[in-house]
Design a protein around this nucleic acid. Structure first.
Lengths: 233, 233
DNA sequence: TGTGACATATAAGTCTGACTTTTTCCGTCG
DNA sequence: CGACGGAAAAAGTCAGACTTATATGTCACA
């Protein structure tokens, strides 16, 4: 994660950001800089910097003679890692998790296909290592160790795709995977079929078989969708 | 687009942002707030607000006794609409356009599939209107009119998917489509095959045929990839 | 009664200067 | 050569005065 609370304005954001993204201030709510500054016991300069950041995330809009207005959810920069983290930490978590999982299901298969074409030898090796690590920890309630390798696996795929937009989703995917293990129902060992699929994806990428890598990854993401009951009737 | 230059700090950002994203300051470069303030002829308060915004975009990092350090490209918030606009406006444009087109090729087919399931009657009607508008302007060098309907079409698809992450890519897609018409080679009328595909997608969504909507949209995006010579050898 | 111009209050925006705090760098001493 | 400690540099913070845009209410006039 990003270093939290680096400076006073960071502390303010850590409180205001979650509050806004949690919908505590409905769209159209008006905040006054001076009041906020008093409430958080910081100077107006600090408060203004915090507002500027919220503004750059399109969470609020600051207008003269009006104040700081909360924007409707549809305008938020929902790809901002900070915003994602705030929402995952709040009441919106389930909804956010579903959105992100759907996004994964779109992006990761394509990324895997690209990885099969562009991955370096080193990345292939890394990928194989990750898959092996997943296999090694797939039994015996070693969920944490499994998670580490799972996250690393998907990160390598996204990086190896050679597309910067995909690569930057590594953190998001990590967040989703971690969330699944930590917050959702995850008592048992991971699904053996999923483990096998990861091994096969690593194989396909190593062999440069883009179509197969894409198809196998699609199966993985379909599994993730099903876990959240996002099915196709 | 967002209102540009709303306030002094906005003007500073309009200059600094493009400069940084264009790579004018290599990663690791150190800027000093005071010097920047002098250079832009603004007060330190204003300069600090600008730096805070750049920091929230992960373009720079501000540390005591060091200064404001430019972060490596790999850490930028490349999904920030502002960052995307800055990069599209600069030397990085071709590269950024390719990245975004690949992203489209991953997202839009899945979005179309979801739209086929979730689209309201109103959205279906809107979609049909857009497709008709595209057909009507597909001949006779009416590129601008065609573009308007093309953008609207893809925006409706993304919105109708019911996924907020997809919906927020509407602006990005609009930017890419507009860029193709305005900056890239686009002398002739649009490809008739592409126009037909859009009409068929509208059909499939109307009929709730998710698989077909996804497959047809995939064909559209493949076309977009081919235009930029991003092929699969 | 409606409509336009104008005055006013309000909250953000800006600037300045003084002060604090953290952190790096460097020189000295063991 | 390493540890300790001081000094300097840059960001961070604060307080107060001033400016500017603008929403809103008022009043005259049609």
């Amino acid at each position: 994660m990003t270093t939290p609370g680096r400076g006073l304005h960071g502390h303010v954001l850590d409180t205001l950001g979650p509050a806004i993204t949690a919908g505590e201030y409905p769209p159209g709510s008006v905040l006054r800089t001076d009041e906020l500054a008093q409430h958080f016991e910081v100077s107006r300069s600090v408060m203004r910097e915090a507002v500027r950041v919220l503004e750059s995330m399109h969470l609020v809009e600051s207008r003269r003679r009006v104040g700081v207005t909360v924007r409707p959810k549809a305008e938020w920069n929902v790809y901002d890692p900070q915003v994602i983290r705030w929402r995952l930490a709040g009441a919106d978590r389930p909804h956010q998790l579903r959105s992100l999982t759907v996004l994964r299901s779109a992006v990761e298969p394509v990324a895997a296909g690209l990885a099969a074409r562009h991955a370096t030898a080193e990345q292939c090796a890394e990928l194989t290592q990750c898959a092996l690590g997943m296999v090694a920890n797939s039994r015996g309630h070693k969920l944490e160790e499994y998670l580490v390798h799972d996250i690393a696996f998907h990160r390598v795929i996204l990086n190896a795709s050679g597309n910067e937009m995909f690569a930057r989703l590594g953190d998001v995917v990590a967040e989703v995977l971690a969330g699944r293990t930590h917050h959702e129902v995850m008592f048992e060992d991971p699904d053996p079929a999923a483990v096998t699929l990861h091994v096969q994806v690593a194989e396909a990428v190593r062999e440069g078989d883009a179509t197969r890598a894409e198809e196998l990854t699609r199966e993985i993401t379909v599994g993730a969708l099903q876990e959240l009951d996002i099915l196709a009737p």
